Computed example of a mutant assay.
Amino acid sequence: MLLTVDTVSKTYPGGRPVLRGASITLDRGQSLALTGESGSGKSTLLNLTGALDGFDSGEITLDGVALSQLDDAGRAALRRDRVALVFQQYNLIPALSV
């Protein structure tokens, strides 16, 4: 499996649950489209599977690596070496050029 999300839950500060027991399995070559209303957890799920944010319970395994076992440096290395992210906001630094 390339990606396994196994009963993952995420609650934001203030006790607002965003994901409750989300599960997805993707093999190499498969694609997935996330659709839903604003606030339904699409961006949260992408941030979790891209190792940008932590989750409360469950497990996410990306390319054989359990994300719950990684510290900040480990998640950064995983993103650097194995994940491509395209942000929905422009995360550009005005003082730099391409």
Rank of each mutant, 00 (worst) to 15 (best):
V86Q: 13
F55Y: 15
R20W: 03
T25K: 01
L92H: 11
L78F: 10
G29T: 09
L96W: 15
L19E: 09
S9W: 01
A73K: 12
E37M: 07
N91M: 14
G29E: 01
A66K: 12
D72I: 05
F55R: 02
G58T: 03
L2C: 02
Y90V: 15
R79S: 02
D63E: 12
S57G: 13
L19I: 03
A77W: 04
G41R: 14
G15C: 00
A77Q: 11
Q30E: 12
L32F: 07
L62Q: 06
F87Y: 15
G15Q: 03
R28P: 07
M1Y: 09
K10I: 00
V86M: 13
S23A: 06
G14T: 05
N47I: 02
G58L: 02
G54V: 13
T4P: 00
L70S: 09
P17A: 03
S68A: 13
R20A: 10
A77P: 08
V5G: 07
P94Y: 03
V5I: 09
T11V: 09
T44E: 04
K42I: 09
S68T: 11
G36T: 01
A33F: 13
D72E: 14
A73C: 02
D63Y: 01
Q30F: 10
S57V: 08
T49V: 15
D63Q: 09
S31H: 15
T44N: 06
A76Q: 14
G64N: 08
F87S: 15
S57D: 14
G54T: 12
L78D: 04
R75I: 06
R16E: 10
A51H: 05
L2G: 02
S9D: 02
D6C: 02
L92K: 10
R16H: 14
R80F: 10
G54A: 13
G36V: 05
D53R: 08
E37A: 08
L19Y: 05
L34P: 01
S43Y: 03
E59M: 07
A76S: 14
D71K: 06
N47S: 13
R75G: 08
A22M: 11
A22V: 02
V8A: 01
Q88W: 11
V65H: 14
L3C: 05
P13E: 07
G41V: 13
L78M: 10
A66G: 06
T35K: 08
V83A: 14
D81P: 00
L96R: 14
A33R: 13
L2D: 01
M1E: 08
S97R: 07
T44G: 01
G14L: 05
T7R: 14
V65C: 10
Y90H: 14
Y90K: 11
D63R: 07
L45A: 10
D72C: 05
D27R: 13
A95I: 08
V8D: 06
V18F: 06
L19K: 04
G39V: 06
A95E: 08
L34Y: 04
D27K: 11
L67V: 04
S38Q: 07
R79K: 05
S68I: 12
G54C: 12
S38H: 03
L52Y: 05
A51P: 02
L2K: 05
T11Q: 04
V8T: 01
M1C: 04
I93C: 15
G41S: 12
A73T: 09
T35W: 03
V5T: 04
D81N: 09
R80K: 12
V18A: 03
L2N: 04
S68Y: 11
N47W: 08
V83Y: 08
V5C: 02
V65I: 11
D81Q: 11
L3G: 01
D71E: 10
G15V: 11
V98L: 15
